[in-house]
Design a protein around this nucleic acid. Structure first.
Length: 255
DNA sequence: AAAAGCCGCAACCGCAGGGTA
DNA sequence: TTACCCTGCGGTTGCGGCTTT
């Protein structure tokens, strides 16, 4: 038996949202709150799919969104978090107040990835391209260097494109293999079973911080595997050992 | 000034996972 | 245990605006 469609596609609008649709959606959510996205379009008098409404609200209409350019601090934070979390855009977005996963994903793909490549840093592994030696993705480094040498001195875009096209799948493979290592931050990450009480007590208790939009998370688990809706971190079930680099990671915390 | 090409962003799509009857 | 529903996520696409030719 197939999955039922998320909405009646024949009677739904697609494409760009009109001002009137936005206003209807905002008014409805102000009155009834978020949630029940499937039922929302009908209740709000919108000819839209529930998913579309959710996306429009989360990515564009939410009042707490910070519009405008990313700051250098945000750039750095995104790069650090990406080196830790990979393409977990929602987790990254959770550490950047006012930014959405979609916005960060777009920003990464259009700006940061190119910036890293132009600096000779592999955006997937976060290692210097020249350090990769005989690794599979070294082809990207070679392609990047070659294209750069052949082009004009400031022709980074062509070089970046060459590197990207050469190595994407190889980089993804390597990312899988190297994910636990974060050389840029010198972090050793591993998921461990719960500690015994005495072991737990011997640890310095990590701070629990208020999370943007409600909810709590502690730096021991750093939010990995913790659902956004949860009010408490689930580190009793599993936790992330940050070893000696806990302070480094703490520097990533949201202000 | 017009056409072509490029870029960035908003939106869509398919899938995974949790919840529930 | 199973089937289905609902939500959220990540990858991809398409369009509008900007830049270059």
């Amino acid at each position: 038996m197939g999955r039922s469609p998320c909405c009646e596609k024949a009677h739904t609008n697609k494409g760009a949202w009109t001002k009137e649709e936005d206003e209807r959606l905002i008014a409805h959510i102000r009155e009834h709150g978020e949630g029940c996205w499937r039922a929302l379009p009908k209740a709000a008098g919108l000819l839209r799919c529930g998913k579309s409404c959710r996306l429009r609200w989360i990515n564009y209409l939410r009042p707490d969104l910070k519009r405008g350019n990313f700051s250098l601090d945000e750039d750095d934070l995104i790069i650090k978090l990406h080196s830790l979390l990979g393409n977990k855009w929602s987790l990254i977005a959770a550490r950047l107040p006012g930014r959405t996963d979609n916005e960060i994903k777009n920003y990464w793909n259009t700006h940061i990835r190119r910036k890293l490549l132009s600096r000779g840093i592999d955006p997937v592994t976060h290692r210097p391209l020249s350090e990769r030696g005989s690794s599979p993705s070294n082809a990207a480094a070679t392609a990047f260097e070659t294209a750069k040498q052949e082009g004009t001195p400031d022709d980074d875009h062509a070089a970046v494109d060459a590197a990207e096209s050469m190595s994407l799948s190889q980089q993804q493979q390597q990312q899988q293999q190297q994910r636990p290592k974060c050389p840029d931050l010198n972090l050793e990450l591993c998921i461990s079973p719960p500690l015994q009480e005495e072991e737990e007590a011997a640890l310095v208790k990590p701070p629990v911080v208020k999370r943007e939009g409600g909810g709590l998370f502690c730096f021991k688990c750093c939010g990995l595997g913790v659902k956004k809706e949860m009010m408490e971190c689930n580190c009793n079930n599993s936790f992330l050992t940050l070893g000696m680099q806990l302070l480094d990671y703490r520097s990533l915390q949201m202000k």
